[in-house]
Design a protein around this nucleic acid. Structure first.
Length: 470
RNA sequence: GGAGGUAUAGCCAAGUGGUAAGGCAAAGGUCUGCAAAACCUUUAUUCCCCGGUUCAAAUCCGGGUGCCUCCUCCA
């Protein structure tokens, strides 16, 4: 069997994953700046890297997963001023909504969720170190990183300093030695939230937090650093500059970046205003569908977001759910026959294929294809003679096993918020069964239609009547 | 201007040198009291265009074209 391969932005190549420490994976994924509800595009990294994490765990790795919360920054301050809330209140509110949205989408909580405001001493210490080494300078009440002091600047985004300088926007900020320099510590304006520092009252710049916090929890070098594609430059580039200048070691071994979610082929973004909030999508579609939709394309490719595509995803997922439900239903009348060696091998081959696909840079699209192949296999033997209990159970647990890697539980009935109770349904089904016995098909169909209108789908099968909520 | 990505059936989407996966949608058939679900069959002689390399290319190379992203806060 092959090993896990990861596309590394740093080398622009797919590389075999070799952990820094055998059996362990340390990963850091940039989390949200909490000043608003998250949109569906913001939900992609949490889901993508959740699957990465789950897959490593599935393959027996001990994973440490860190995702930060940026809980102080210009946009949060702006939001606070607009809304009359304090910075803390804004942050608290949107951390809570982020956690709620992302949890609904099946994302496991990170092992550590560091917040900027709880790591000010570490950040100050980090900046002091950079100043001492000549990589940063104080200007006014601010501290800036001296990009010219890091010859490798640009290695992640594969641009050299001259090119970047040529493209850099002309800034009004004359405190900087160089337009590419970026702020590490921002002096506070009157009335703004601040912390005391050797350079006066102020707050951390955006990039420094990830360097300081990842260093605290994961060390000089860790295995994987992930985030959205747009963070490659300048955010991750700057993190590399800060961290590597201070420690003298590579910050992370593998840099992973997910593609965007687009609307009409254009990046969904807060600034463009073409975004759809996760909390709104959740009212319309099951979070399972949203997650399945995201995983049906490779994580590095952009995906368009539309009702039509989500509906397609819902239908696709429905095929797997139906299969699993039907399999459970068949268990009732399953035969107690022993599974043959060949049957065991066929089942095991599916698992191996799934692993192979996931090994290939977490190709969830191909992994899902394997699930559909399992569905066909299972449907075929369900259509044939009596289902073997042991084999059916083995496939059910395979669905659960692979579903757990993707973070989707298959065969689940969608939660019924409204609709009739089980008792009501069963009473109607009983009445219909009687009608059918008396060949009163008109009445039988009437009841079936009635149930249909209540969102209940009836199916007559050789194993008896089964029903599910639509 | 610089750096990348992408272009595969009605729609979505894998495939990165060996002769086009899978899903959705559609059509026909089987099963069924009728349905549902399922199964079987059909749906790209061809992978944006033009050249080249090769016994062999959707896959490699060169040149175009379209769309997207980054170079500025953005997942």
């Amino acid at each position: 069997m092959s090993n896990i391969k990861i596309y590394n932005t740093l080398t622009r190549k797919k590389e075999e994953f070799v952990p820094l420490e055998p059996g362990k994976v340390k990963m850091y994924v940039c989390g949200p700046t909490v000043y608003n509800f998250i949109h569906i595009g913001n939900a992609r990294p949490p889901i993508v890297f959740d699957v990465v994490r789950r897959y490593f765990m599935y393959r027996g790795y001990d994973v440490t997963y860190v995702q930060n919360f940026t809980d102080v920054d210009d946009k949060i301050i702006k939001k606070a001023n607009e809304s009359g809330m304090s910075v803390e209140e804004v942050a608290e509110k949107f951390i809570a909504s982020f956690v709620e949205d992302v949890r609904a989408l099946g994302v496991k909580e990170a092992d550590i969720h560091p917040k900027v405001t709880e790591h000010i001493p570490e950040i100050i210490f980090f900046i002091e170190g950079l100043i001492e080494k000549g990589h940063a300078y104080v200007a006014g009440g601010d501290v800036y990183f001296r990009t010219a002091s890091f010859p490798e600047y640009g290695k992640l985004s594969h641009q050299n300093i001259e090119e970047l300088q040529a493209g850099a926007r002309i800034e009004v900020n004359d405190k900087k030695e160089n337009p590419l320099d970026f702020v590490l510590w921002k002096g506070a304006k009157p009335g703004e939230i601040y912390w005391e520092s050797p350079w006066g009252k102020g707050r951390p710049g955006w990039h420094i937090e990830c360097s300081a916090m990842s260093h605290k929890y994961l060390g000089d070098t860790f295995d994987i650093h992930g985030g959205g594609h747009d963070l490659t430059f300048p955010h991750h580039e700057n993190e590399i500059a800060q961290s590597e200048c201070l420690t003298g070691h590579p910050m992370a071994k593998y840099w992973m970046h997910n593609g965007y979610i687009n609307i009409e082929n254009e990046k969904m973004s807060k600034s463009l205003g073409n975004f759809i909030l996760v909390k709104d999508v959740r009212e319309k579609y099951s979070p399972r569908v949203v997650r399945f939709f995201m995983l049906s394309a490779h994580y590095r490719n952009p995906i368009n977001f539309s009702d039509e595509l989500l509906q397609q995803a819902a239908n696709s997922l429905g095929r797997i759910d139906t299969c699993v439900r039907n399999l459970k239903h068949h268990l009732i009348s399953a035969a107690n026959e022993v599974t043959t060696e060949e049957e065991k091998q066929r089942l095991d081959a599916f698992r191996k294929r799934f692993i192979e696909e996931m090994n290939n840079d977490f190709n969830t699209a191909d992994a899902i294809t394997v699930l559909f192949d399992i569905v066909r296999e299972v449907n075929q033997f369900m259509a044939g003679s009596a289902v073997k209990k042991e084999l059916a159970e083995a496939y059910l647990s395979l669905f659960a096993e692979l579903g757990d890697v993707l973070g989707i539980s298959f065969g689940e009935a969608e939660a019924s918020v409204t609709g009739p109770s089980d008792e009501e349904i069963n009473a109607l089904i009983e009445e219909r069964t009687l009608a059918r016995k008396e060949k009163n098909f008109a009445r039988a169909d009437e009841i079936r239609n009635q149930l249909q209108e209540m969102g209940i789908v009836l199916e007559d099968t050789p194993q008896g009547i089964r029903w599910h909520r639509k």
